[in-house]
Design a protein around this nucleic acid. Structure first.
Lengths: 174, 174
DNA sequence: GTGCGTGCAAACAATTTGCACGCTA
DNA sequence: TAGCGTGCAAATTGTTTGCACGCAC
């Protein structure tokens, strides 16, 4: 099975998963489902891929870009190629372990594809640029209507709200 | 006033606006509001900018990219620089004459910022890539809730549905 | 041994920017 | 005449790809 795969690769760092990735906090990721998805895609869980996953697990709710992931991996663990980061992100997205999001800041960003927290939306502050998450989903009825009215079968949706966050609203000046 | 500005520039084409841009069809654009917005921004309505606007008025509902606008302007009117198209799109977006949209196809796209048709959404077909529009807006109550619950004052929102359009659903094979 | 995954550098594509020049206010 | 707007080419930036190598199966 895959669990045994991730010992080492290219003679580099060995990652201790005795405690799993679940240590992160509230935004838990089920390593087992990561293993399963890799297995189903018959992909190896290499140290580089593990590191990428680990970065996300240690930065819950952060919408990281490829460059940011690369920097974090380098800083916290070891040097890996930026191209490898891109390829890992691509792979993990295809396996639905990550989700690609676009905040129109010129680069793609990624977050865990948390099926439990499924369909959360984003509140993008136009002043400070910070992105909050919003868990509500009231769009099901709308999706049914779209199917009936237009014959368009909705598979997924993406909703972003642009506005002013509480913190910025409180800053009276400027 | 601005109306008299757009005679010619660099000795090139003169555009006849005796009939205005409103000829386009259902997706009418009020030239007067375009004038007003340029005036408020104290920007000139140059022939190049007019041509860009004209292209959008002649392609209602089409979500054009910079490159596409450039090609269309060149084909239908005259050769202008691609950089100028980019700068025009940027300016017109800032003046809220156009709206920038992102369909994750690797380039920014633009459409008229139709305040009348305000808040229409997009149905993106994951098979053929075509984008339909959907005029409904049921998000007002949700926005009020977000303000109350989170203190986040929503100014605008963007909603995209991904799914299979009717045409593709009918193609049984492949 | 075959092939997947990686690192590096080169290639790409969309977009931005520097600069000289012409036209407009 | 001062400065905005343009065209062109060069520069940037995010992302992808070709290739040789090494480890895993």
């Amino acid at each position: 099975m895959l669990a045994g795969l991730s010992r080492q690769y290219r003679g580099t760092a060995v990652i201790d998963y005795s405690q799993g990735l679940e240590n992160g906090g509230m935004h838990m990721v089920h390593l087992s489902s990561v293993y399963r998805k890799l297995e189903e895609g018959s992909k190896r869980l290499t140290p580089q891929r593990e590191l990428v996953i680990r970065i996300f697990s240690e930065h819950p709710g952060e919408h990281l870009s490829a460059e940011e992931v690369h920097q974090l991996v380098k800083k916290k663990f070891q040097d890996i190629g930026l191209a490898t980061v891109y390829r890992s992100l691509e792979l993990l997205t295809q396996l639905e372990i990550l989700t690609r999001i676009n905040f129109d800041d010129g680069r793609s960003r990624y977050e865990f594809n948390q099926e439990e927290t499924h369909r959360h939306h984003h509140l993008v502050c136009v002043r400070c640029g910070r992105v909050e998450e919003y868990g509500e989903d009231l769009l099901d009825t709308l999706e049914t209507r779209i199917l009936n009215e237009r014959g368009f079968a909705v598979l997924d949706h993406e909703l972003k709200f642009y506005g002013v966050c509480r913190a910025c609203a409180l800053k009276k000046t400027n």
